[in-house]
Amino acid sequence: MNQWKLFLAFFRVGMLGYGGGPSSIPLIHTEVVDKYKWLNKDDFSDVLAIANALPGPIATKLAGYVGWRTGGVVGMLNAIIATTLPTVFLLMLLLSTLNHFKGVAWVQGMSNAVVPVVGVMLATLTWEFIEKSKESLGWKITSLIVVASFILLYFLNVHPAILIGCLVGYAFFSKSKNEKKKKVKAS
Rank of each mutant, 00 (worst) to 15 (best):
L167A: 11
Y65E: 09
Q3D: 13
P57D: 09
G72H: 11
K134R: 14
N2K: 15
N52V: 01
L90V: 09
T87L: 14
S187Y: 08
T60S: 15
V104S: 00
F7E: 10
E31S: 09
N178G: 04
I28V: 15
S96M: 12
Y18E: 01
L48R: 04
F7L: 08
W4V: 12
L62Q: 07
A79G: 07
I80A: 06
G56P: 07
V107L: 01
A148L: 15
V115D: 03
L163D: 03
I164Q: 13
W4G: 01
T97E: 02
K181M: 06
S149I: 04
M110R: 00
L125N: 07
G19A: 07
V158N: 07
A148W: 00
L95M: 10
G19Q: 07
W38K: 11
K182P: 00
D42C: 00
I164L: 12
K185I: 09
D42P: 00
V32E: 10
Y154G: 00
I58D: 07
I50Y: 11
K177D: 00
R12N: 13
A63W: 02
S143Y: 02
V146L: 02
G21Q: 02
S149L: 04
T30Q: 15
K140R: 12
Q108T: 04
T126W: 08
K35P: 00
D46W: 01
A171P: 09
N40P: 05
L39W: 15
A63N: 05
P86N: 11
E131S: 07
M121R: 01
A171S: 15
V118L: 05
I130T: 10
M1A: 13
G19H: 08
Y154I: 10
K61R: 14
S187P: 00
T142E: 12
N99L: 07
K140F: 13
G20L: 10
Y36E: 15
L91S: 14
G165Q: 03
A186H: 05
G109K: 09
A171M: 12
R12V: 07
I145M: 09
I141L: 14
V147R: 02
F172K: 06
S111Y: 10
K181V: 11
L137F: 14
Q3C: 00
L95V: 07
L125H: 05
A186S: 11
F173C: 13
I81C: 03
S143L: 15
N78S: 06
W139P: 00
G17F: 04
W38D: 11
G67C: 03
V117W: 04
T70Q: 15
